[in-house]
């Protein structure tokens, strides 16, 4: 239960940060996708079920603060969280490189999704210019934030696991 509330707070903070705070910070001219980081982090740390749940919540948060169609982002984030859940326990999670590689992969998927369903569908096909003006800047900033945020989420996960073990022992 504690985990659920803490994750909710984390998602709320990231949404707020992504939507309102980032634009105030100078030199950051592309919005990093913090909710994407939260989604794949929870997916890889906690597995499919929780990846799906928190991915869905992140996606809904994203849908709520932007004016598009409700469910558009939720659908993608849900599958991303679920998909990252398959990587659960496959490799060592507390290496920053994991965060970097996962950021790059999920950013590529995310941009492909948006590009296909919001741009190709209207006949806007100039992907090369989108890559240089939208995708690469966002990816760089997201990677920078990912190393930090992923560290926080891993630390939070370790602390929570300890707490859960302790409270489980109490009942025994």
């Amino acid at each position: 239960m504690l985990r659920f509330f803490l994750s909710l707070i984390l998602i709320a903070l990231c949404t707020l940060f992504q939507g309102s705070v980032i634009s105030m910070i100078p030199y950051i001219n592309s919005t990093p996708n913090l909710l994407l980081i939260v989604t794949f982090s929870i997916g890889i740390l906690r597995g499919r079920d929780e990846g799906l749940l928190y991915g869905l919540l992140c996606g809904i948060a994203m849908d709520l603060v932007s004016g598009g169609y409700l469910g558009f982002y939720a659908l993608f984030y849900m599958y991303l969280g679920f998909g990252c859940g398959f990587l659960h326990q496959l490799f060592d999670v507390d290496v920053p490189l994991v965060a970097v590689i996962l950021t790059i992969l999920s950013e590529i998927l995310y941009h492909l999704y948006v590009f296909l369903f919001r741009f190709v569908i209207r006949g806007r096909l100039s992907i090369s210019s989108y890559i240089s003006s939208i995708i690469l800047p966002e990816m760089i900033f997201t990677i920078a934030f990912a190393i930090l945020l992923y560290g926080i989420i891993v630390a939070m996960n370790i602390a929570l696991e300890k707490y859960e073990q302790r409270s489980a022992l109490k009942f025994v």
Partner: peptide, 11 residues
């Protein structure tokens, strides 16, 4: 009070 949650759509 908020800008650009994503980078694709300017809102």
């Amino acid at each position: 009070i908020g800008k650009n949650t994503g980078n694709w759509i300017y809102e």
